[in-house]
Design a protein around this nucleic acid. Sequence first.
DNA 1: GCGTGATTACTCGGATACAAGATGTCCGAGTTTGAGCGG
DNA 2: CCGCTCAAACTCGGACATCTTGTATCCGAGTAATCACGC
Lengths: 131, 131
Amino acid sequence: MKYSQATDYALHAMLFLVAEAPDKPVSVHLLAEKLGVSQTYLSKMLTKLVKAGLIHSISGANGGYRLKRNQEDISFLDIIHAIEGTTSMFECSFNHGNECLIQQVVIDAERQMEQVLKSKKITELAKQFKG
Amino acid sequence: MKYSQATDYALHAMLFLVAEAPDKPVSVHLLAEKLGVSQTYLSKMLTKLVKAGLIHSISGANGGYRLKRNQEDISFLDIIHAIEGTTSMFECSFNHGNECLIQQVVIDAERQMEQVLKSKKITELAKQFKG
DNA sequence: GCGTGATTACTCGGATACAAGATGTCCGAGTTTGAGCGG
DNA sequence: CCGCTCAAACTCGGACATCTTGTATCCGAGTAATCACGC
């Protein structure tokens, strides 16, 4: 049970965008260099973030990725969901009478975690990052 | 980011032990049959639970697995940790100045989840299961 | 009836196999910018 | 100076390769209870 490295990349990439370049497009090349990871792999993650509506892609020369307007609202959970998907962490594989008590407990715990991740916005961190 | 099926098996196996046979050994054969999973694979999970000190194995004829004495204290977290390991869900792969702000947030969220899983005992569920 | 050995019913652990997912690379296609060039 | 073309700098998306992990099986070794048999 571990978050994938892809999530790690995505979170750091988003933090960089918010902190360093909130309004101008940044190329994958530069972003990958700053983070020290492979361009092509990072681009896959960015594509997911685009599909999730968190960032915007601008093709052509001087293109790159740019934050969407509502950057204030972007939470950790948004980014994690964009990469990992939104399906629940736990799924009971037995078929006992509709609702599994075990599953209810685990999902309840999961919601607690999501609550924290949802309330924490990436912009908060960017301020700390700078200051 | 998903709990493995092995965790699902282990939780259900523990619930069965607590609810149906709190003091006598149950063979893997029977347990696997009740849950409808493979014996050999389930036995691997039970081995982990033994190593974690949650249950006891009795070899030889009429042997099997039995709960440890302190069954009241066994929480969801204990079982999950036994199977999944205790390492954190998130580990920052970059080396920026010791402490990663992102990692702190995610680990904080993780702790919230663990809090719920820790406070929920398997015996609680067994009572609901019966009643 | 009692000890001894064989059988049976278990767990334990290692070796192996297979599938899926994470990670990473490569390349061709489309798109926009900007430079160069001819009128 | 204007417009056209072409190259460069990008993203996009699919195909592919590799490695790890989860899932699962098989088998031999060890262990404890029980049964059978002979004294």
